[in-house]
């Protein structure tokens, strides 16, 4: 691992200032992505600013039924918070299906939003990779791309966003709060994730030195019966082949509201808005769900090893909506 300076800060302002003024500075929260990537030589900070002492650990109710999650709250804590487990079960399930309990005890919510792709070409430090070394090309386009994305891809990058919880947060329109050299701002989570386009190295709109301070989950009655399903080769401790966060409101057999988001198939946590639109006013049947899923996946761009995900994602959506309509519990 490269030599590192280390500083522990106790206020957000200190954290922002010290990183903003050092081009080779980076924040250190749980470290589960950061330390891994520094050891691999993929992330190259010279200074890690430990933000774990900042007062950003709380999880609070918001007026109207929403929840504010401090950026340093650990995944495991958030998952067992009654407000989350009760009002946003899809979020809690996504948290518990991510990583392992040890990693969930370490990883912060803010850090989770910033986690990097598991693309082997990105991580190996040597293959051409536009995300790691802009302009060098994408090794995954014609390489081993079973794990790669089919939605939101570009000719420059097909790397999958690996987060589970971000998929659920995207489904429920979470808002990311940040503090940076330019002050504080609120970023709707769907805007927080950028499509790769021709700048796959830019994954989010954070500026250097800008820190995530909190994540708001706005009130959403539909979330109370949400589900998060994750499908993978191994039963646990693996990133998703496909995951789906689904919630549906059905009145007299007709869908009146739906939320669908996908993981494992998108270059960002994928809000399936096309499917959602397609679901409004249709009978709550597997056939309707399949039609909506097909609509969403019609934009998919499969590659050699991941073509199966086009079908798999559609079936996952049907399964997710079916379970959500049944009342959320498996």
């Amino acid at each position: 691992m490269r030599p590192l300076g280390y500083a522990r800060v106790s206020t957000v302002a200190e954290a922002v200032e010290i990183v903003a003024t050092d081009p080779a500075g980076a924040f250190l929260a749980g470290g589960t992505t950061e330390i891994d990537l520094v050891r691999l030589g993929v992330a190259r900070p010279d200074l890690l600013v430990d933000i774990n002492d900042l007062p950003l650990h709380d999880i609070d109710d918001l007026p109207g039924g929403g929840v504010r999650i401090g950026a340093l709250a650990r995944m495991s804590e958030v998952a067992r918070t009654p407000a989350i487990a009760g009002r946003y079960p899809g979020v809690a399930q996504a948290l518990l299906l991510g990583a392992s309990q040890q990693l969930r005890n370490m990883a912060s919510m803010g850090g989770n939003l910033c986690q990097r792709t598991r693309c082997a070409y990105f991580r190996d430090g040597v293959s051409p990779c536009n995300k790691r070394e802009p302009g060098t090309g994408c090794s995954a386009l014609d390489g081993l791309n079973r794990g790669h994305a089919i939605l939101g891809t570009s000719e420059h990058c097909v790397a999958t966003h690996p987060s589970d919880v971000a998929v659920a947060l995207v489904a429920f329109d979470a808002v990311v709060h940040t503090a940076g050299p330019g002050g504080v701002r609120r970023i709707p989570i769907d805007d927080f994730y950028l499509m790769p386009g021709d700048t796959p190295d830019r994954e989010n709109p954070l500026r250097h030195g800008e820190l995530i301070t909190a994540i708001d989950l706005p009130p959403a009655g539909i979330a109370e019966r949400s589900v998060y399903l994750k499908f993978r080769d191994r039963q646990s401790y693996e990133f998703a082949l496909v995951s789906v966060c689904a919630a549906v409101r059905v009145e007299d057999g007709i869908v009146t509201e739906a939320r669908v988001a996908l993981g494992g198939v998108g270059t960002k946590p994928w809000r399936a808005r096309l499917a959602e639109q397609h679901l409004l006013g249709v009978p709550a049947t597997a056939e309707s769900y399949a039609a909506a899923a097909a609509y969403e996946l019609s934009a998919a761009v499969p590659r050699r090893h991941n073509a199966f995900k086009v079908e798999l994602a559609q079936r996952a959506i049907v399964r997710g909506l079916t379970q959500a309509a049944r009342g959320g519990m498996r």
């Binding site: 598991r118 390489g143 794990g147 191994r234 646990s236």
Partner: peptide, 17 residues
Amino acid sequence: RWGASNLGEYLVPVNAD
């Protein structure tokens, strides 16, 4: 080069399997 070179991508069973 091998596609997988770690235990995150080369899958061996975990307890739940």
